[in-house]
């Protein structure tokens, strides 16, 4: 019996591990990602440990945390990014809910909700400055309604937050809507025949199936909001309450030409972001993540 038990050819044994000629297709992609992403990132990482002014390799990081103006950027960025992402996700749930199923004008409404993607940060910023500015249309109405003084909504925290909501909401909405349409509506109908009220169906059927998708939506929204840069400069107060990490990193690297320190700030930015996303994704692992019975 053992006489015929000869080993299969090498080709087959490699193919068994998934290694065959198809993998050549990966070469351009792998070269690309190593050359343009991994290498620069690692280069930046090691650069961040070579402070421009010499000293200990950790000097840049020590400087960052001991300089209050720099250290504060972490909280400023989180204070903007977290509420913006949270708002965008939470606000898109009820709207996505109303958009399920077929109704007249659904495509028009979807398009209308997606249009802000095209605005771009500059038009949004110009518009926010003009509309919410002290003599803008908003404050004219605000004063006409009986307010004592114009609301201060630009060149501060609120301006940037509005900008993040305008550019971030369509994105969060699209993702939520596509996750929601992936849930088989007959599951809710089944729950209804078993006596679950609208509220119970939402809590016990839809929400648990939607939650993992919401976690991903939150992460992606947060990435968008966290990297806020142009709007923080234009509608915010870039030297003060909206001095976010991107501004600090950019100014250090390209205005002050301290690439080492700039890289250090960029690395810290990546770290903070990965921590937030990591926490959300760990929470996500505690959820049911199987099929949602949707189409396809």
């Amino acid at each position: 019996m053992t006489a015929v038990l000869e080993r299969a050819s090498l080709r087959h044994r490699l193919a068994e591990k998934g290694v065959d000629r198809v993998l050549w297709l990966l070469v351009p992609g792998a070269v690309f990602v190593v050359l343009l992403f991994v290498y620069p990132f690692l280069y930046g990482l090691q650069l961040s440990f070579q402070p421009k002014s010499g000293g200990s390799p950790f000097q840049n990081y020590v400087t960052f945390f001991s300089d209050e103006y720099l250290a504060e950027t972490v909280w400023i960025t989180l204070r903007l990014g977290l509420p913006a992402a949270l708002f965008n996700v939470l606000a898109s749930i009820p709207i996505a809910f109303r958009m399920r199923g077929r109704f007249r004008g659904k495509r028009a409404l979807t398009t209308l909700l997606v249009v802000p993607i095209t605005l771009g940060t500059v038009l949004t910023a110009e518009g926010l400055l003009a509309f919410f500015g002290p003599t803008g249309w908003f404050n004219r109405i605000w004063l006409a309604l009986g307010a004592d003084e114009p609301a201060r909504l630009t060149h501060n925290y609120w301006g940037v937050l509005f900008s993040l909501i305008i550019t971030g909401f369509p994105f969060a909405f699209l993702l939520t809507l596509s996750y929601l349409s992936g849930i088989d509506p007959t599951l809710e109908q089944a729950a209804a025949t078993l006596g679950a009220s609208k509220r119970q169906r939402f809590r016990t059927i839809t929400m648990p199936l939607l939650a993992p998708g919401l976690a991903v939506t939150f992460c992606l929204s947060f990435v968008l909001a966290f990297s806020v840069f142009p709007s923080a400069v234009m509608v915010g107060n870039p030297a003060g309450e909206t001095h976010v990490m991107s501004i600090a990193a950019y100014e250090t690297a390209l205005r002050d030409n301290d690439f080492a320190m700039g890289s250090a700030i960029a690395m810290l930015m990546a770290l903070v972001m990965l921590i937030v996303i990591g926490v959300v994704l760990i929470w996500r692992t505690t959820l049911y993540r199987g099929a949602t019975g949707g189409k396809g």
């Binding site: 343009l36 992403f37 290498y39 620069p40 990132f41 280069y43 930046g44 990482l45 650069l47 992460c219 992606l220 990435v223 966290f226 990297s227 840069f229 990490m245 991107s246 990193a249 950019y250 690297a253 390209l254 690439f259 700039g262 890289s263 700030i265 960029a266 690395m267 930015m269 990546a270 972001m273 996303i277």
Partner: peptide, 15 residues
Amino acid sequence: ILMPPMTYGIPLATV
């Protein structure tokens, strides 16, 4: 896709 463009943009610009 997950990283803010600034984080890899600055090292990339350096390179």
